[in-house]
Design a protein around this nucleic acid. Structure first.
Lengths: 132, 132
DNA sequence: TATTGTTATACTCTATAACTATA
DNA sequence: TATAGTTATAGAGTATAACAATA
């Protein structure tokens, strides 16, 4: 069963990404999402996304250039830099999420009440599972 | 609710991809999966994955070089080429799927029988939804 | 001396434009 | 003349190696 479930989740995720044609690149989305939890250093971001430090330097530079993030010096450690998401960054992320949610909503809407209830319970279970 | 479900599927998909460290690159996986339905031309593959023809030329060249696919001339149209997945390609795909399924299985296993039953029904509904 | 971050350089995936071969 | 595929070239994203600044 878990095989079917795993594949079902991946198929849904693929179609959502495929058909929502996002304005933000996947690696940028990932970093912006991390930044919604608060300011973070490039090194911390690199660890979370399992990319190298130079890659994150480039990604952060792109986000700053797009106006979606800002750099500031860490007051406690002169070596560190803190990256913060901007209001424009939050807006861009919100727009993307809205598009993706709309794709899902139009399809879930057509299901029976019973199926929708099952999916609601499944969503809760899957979130717990992803939290582990 | 559909928002929560959409995000849950994407979180699961992300973690599966992230933690199964595949030996096949994502764009190669996609092409190999298409080829399991039967031989296909580069142009057809390019359309399905929404990449340009030159990109698919490169991807196919990589798959052939890795021994995961083969090229043959189309007997009915001298311009066309047919790409076929090899046994080694099927094996590579199978290994990847097995790793991904194992990740999911170890987590689903720990859930209550009730939760597992909910997820089983959800998997079926999600597959129908992805088929649309 | 260790840590944080950047710059230099190369490789891969993707795209557009131009080309070859066949219909 | 249109179509299928490739080659040429350039633009991103990522990696390793070498470097600068700070702890």
């Amino acid at each position: 069963m878990s095989n079917e479930l795993r594949q079902a989740c991946m198929r849904i995720a693929r179609r959502v990404r495929f058909e929502s044609d996002d304005a933000i690149a996947p690696h940028q989305v990932s970093v912006l999402v991390h930044l919604t939890s608060g300011p973070m250093s490039p090194g911390e971001l690199a660890d979370r996304d399992r990319v190298t430090a130079p890659s994150m330097t480039r990604t952060v530079a792109g986000l700053v250039e797009a106006g979606w993030a800002e750099r500031e010096a860490d007051p406690h450690d002169g070596r560190r830099v803190l990256i913060t998401i901007t209001d424009r960054g939050r807006t861009a992320l919100g727009t993307m999420r809205h598009r993706r949610d709309r794709w899902m909503f139009t399809r879930v809407q057509r299901l029976s009440a019973r199926d929708q209830a099952t999916l609601a319970r499944a969503a809760e279970i899957l979130h717990r599972l992803a939290d582990e």
